[in-house]
Amino acid sequence: MSFLSFLISGISLGSIYAIMALGYTMVYGIAKMLNFAHGDVIMIGSFVVYYAVTGAGIPAPAAVLISVVVCTFLGIAIEKVAYKPLRRAASLAVLITAIGVSYLLQNLALLFFGADPKIFPNVITLPALNLFGGQLVIAGTTVMSIVANILIMIFLMLFIKKTKQGQAMLAVSEDKDAAMLCGINVNGTISLTFAIGSGLAAIAGVLLCSQYNQLTPYTGSLPGIKAFTAAVFGGIGSIPGAFFGGLLLGVIEILSSAYISSQLANAIVFAVLIIVLLVKPSGLFGRPMREKV
């Protein structure tokens, strides 16, 4: 029974990685850039929930909603101020800017929220599931993470397949000029992508902090890198790739720390990534990259 319980923990953690990975993969797909600051948007979103609930006494669902709105606008603002002016710049310049934005957000959080860890309030009040006569207990947070991930994936797939804006995103991600010649507002579509990715970051932040109960300005940092890894694992730019990449990463991490060594868990995660990329450089679901000229 303990294996099953580890597996479920892995899927739960992996679901959070998957939701975060979506932000990386969608932005990469459309803007061909690694938004290094995505993990820190997650952290800011968590602080919004923290202060809304503990400071202002706002009910948890409303606090999460506020956080989604704040993160959405934060994402749009970061894109407008930091990345849009670099649309035609070398990718290295964009990457360095993104790292800069990441540190800026962390330092702003340090300045305004302080370095001391905050105890994250209990915002997910879903009761635990008792299975097999109490032999397997699944926490409410775990159930919520898995359900949220599945719902978000279904919603996004439908959005992209069925709506005009979704199709515009695909068009822009493949060929910006050709998209423009179809009458698509390319800048608007890129903004929308950042908005969706960042809005999802708020949800990922709540799930992440509910899992670990702790919040610091660095909370988004390592999970952000792991979620990026998950996106690469699944095939950067691919939404199903983010889903399965995230789940696999979570499961590998939890199982290795349970059965091999908790100190080595991260090393094992990255070793698996390296092996996957050696065998299939475009990731599990990635299409072979067509280099743009």
């Binding site: 005009k164 199709q167 515009a168 695909l170 068009a171 493949e174 060929d175 050709a178 998209a179 179809c182 009458g183 698509i184 299409r287």
Partner: peptide
């Protein structure tokens, strides 16, 4: 748009 179907390409042409 090579990753989209013929029909989807035509639909995008009517985006406006």
């Amino acid at each position: 748009f090579s990753q989209l179907s013929v029909y989807e390409n035509l639909k995008l042409g009517s985006f406006t």
